[in-house]
Design a protein around this nucleic acid. Structure first.
Lengths: 217, 217, 217, 217
DNA sequence: TATGAATGAGAATTCATTCAT
DNA sequence: GATGAATGAATTCTCATTCAT
């Protein structure tokens, strides 16, 4: 697959329209099942036009991946997290985590189709996974470790846990929540998001074991 | 997609061989990108033979889904969990959770290609999700709730948490671990599974907030 | 282009039919201007069938080239020439050359479309030229040199000429004759082939300079 | 194909540039395999510009053919031959033929790409052949017949040969030499052109039969 | 029953030509 | 005039499905 330089070269309006149509359709039916004719129709251009901008169908996918990695890595993943953490002084951990969860949820909501394309491709292609790791996971993890260390110093979180483990736990919980919202909404309609987030935060914070004393916290 | 009766009608040896080949190939490249000729070759039958057993390519997928749902729902998901819980009398929660995690991990390991096919299809088709919900999730949840209630009564777990929330937390943690093992093994090679499971159990049990007393557990 | 092993692997009846249709159409309009749909129609098969036998359109051309090189090199070019030379004992040079010209003319007549495809492709592709050289020219030249030496020894031909030069002269004369017959038949209709061949033989034998003695032949 | 009036209407500089680029590219890959975008790039104009000057791609080819026929018929084919023949008084036949061969060789060298386009198209299109015949062959032949007659009268050449036969012989020899030079240079590199032309002249003059008496000529 | 050659509908891709700027 | 983006018809190629053996 080979995803080239992630630099955010400006895209023409038409190129962007094609990419958006493709994201939508790839997201709905997967890369292989989508047809370029469909994408063209949805983008409102002639089928041939697609191939002016993208040499092959696979290149459309590459275009999406590049955009996705750019979007996730720089702007979204790290920076907004950073803001929350910077604004976290004095706040208690519960608030911070709630905010983080809300923020991530909102973020993934806004880019869900794109994310769906990226993750399903990741399932099949190691190079996509590598790119995801390099551009998103490793960076997010790095940033996260910094916050964890600080939080641990301040006594906000346990200092006997490795950040990776905490990261994984939060990611896992978040992932399930997203899946629930996006895929199983008819089975598990979530009415009260505040409450839902609260419960999740609670589990993340204190686990499922009985809480011994009402005095702590 | 319409997944018909889940009854485990016996499959002929050839039918089974075709299904296995298809699971393998669908798992590697996805349903649309796989070709029937490839499946036939891998199954060691003529391409035409596939269509004696499965009217269309989609029917092969249906066959896989049926098998998968059967496998997950009845035999695997519930029963083995049950065993663990039944054998749990007297054991502490940490041991139980560790056992559950180990067990699920082993299970998913053994059926990973099949699970991969099911879950990627679930991403695209609501009816598959419905079938997954009906056959797996709702049953597992039901069983889980029973155990939770009992465990709560015995004072093993917090009684202020809804079983769903606990379920979600465990599922999320487990999901990430699977993804890490199956997809990001080159980035996060897990050497010491005992330790890894221990850490995860720890977080599930006690969360990430600072633990106040050494008296816990 | 890469023309693979020239071994005469047997072709199925359908493969042969496709090749023949392709030879006909490539010969009429050239490789690029011919369409696979046209070839399929002319061969009486479905378009898809072509691609069972030839992975790409270019492979059809390759198939033709292989067949052509086989046909020209082994069976035709050398062997029939050989017969003539073997039967030449005692005959005078004029008869031999006439026979050779007739023979080659008949040969090229019978494979004209194929030859046309090969030569037009040779114009554009060095590898085709190389293959032609290796398989046809160098072999024919080699055989020809043998005959020339013998003929020179017997005093049938000048011994101060290099075989290459003789070869070139005969080939040139023949080439023009073929072109005349195949391409400019409406401008230069040849009525009396015996006479035509005679005149050509005469020029090949004695050149255009005035002949001094009426004693020749 | 229909090649219209051969009059040398003046071409704009841009038109000429397009034609030259087209000659180059058609010559390398053939008419059908060449793309207008390629031609435009090579001519340094926009693709649309081509269609200002030539209504269709085929018209570019027509333009080349017209130019080629003009070039060959008038200026080149006849006139320079004429010069040689006019200057031939007193010279022996050998010198004349050598000069003619040299001259033609140099000529074809200089216009090889154009000639290649014309001749390959001639292979496929009768009207091109007709145009070649009308504009080049018939004129050249006519002129040639005149010289032949004179030469025969002067006793320079055999008078029992029809000029056509002589023409054909010279053309054939020349054709092979060109092919050798242009297409098979790696197999038959010609080092010493003087010698090569000499040998060819020798064969054209005296043929391949043993020369009977050292006394003649 | 099993085969695999044949099919043809449909997919990706190319490219001459048009046309608004 | 010149441009080059846009077009869509035509082309190559794929592959699920059929069917004669």
């Amino acid at each position: 697959m080979e995803i080239p330089d992630m630099s955010d070269t400006k895209l023409s309006e038409k190129e962007q329209r094609i990419l958006e149509a493709a994201i939508h359709i790839f997201s709905e039916k997967g890369f292989s099942a989508a047809t370029t004719s469909e994408i063209a129709k949805s983008a409102g251009v002639a089928e041939g036009t697609i191939f002016r901008y993208f040499k092959t169908k696979k290149d459309i996918l590459r275009g999406i991946l590049i955009q996705a990695l750019n979007a996730f890595s720089g702007k979204l993943v790290v920076s907004s997290l950073e803001k929350i953490f910077l604004a976290s002084e004095g706040k208690d951990l519960r608030s911070i985590i709630r905010e983080v969860l809300y923020d991530r949820l909102k973020l993934l909501d806004s880019v869900f189709p794109m994310a769906r394309v990226v993750f399903t491709e990741a399932i099949y292609h190691e190079d996509v996974r590598d790119a995801i790791y390099e551009n998103i996971i490793s960076r997010a993890l790095e940033a996260f470790e910094g916050y964890c260390r600080k939080a641990a110093e301040r006594g906000l979180i346990r200092n006997d846990l490795e950040p990776q483990v905490i990261f994984r736990s939060m990611l896992g919980n978040l992932g399930i929540l997203i899946a629930q919202k996006m895929l199983f909404s008819s089975q598990f309609a979530i009415q009260d998001w505040d409450k839902e987030i609260d419960r999740m935060t609670d589990v993340i914070l204190y686990g499922i074991a009985p809480i011994r004393q009402p005095d702590h916290e």
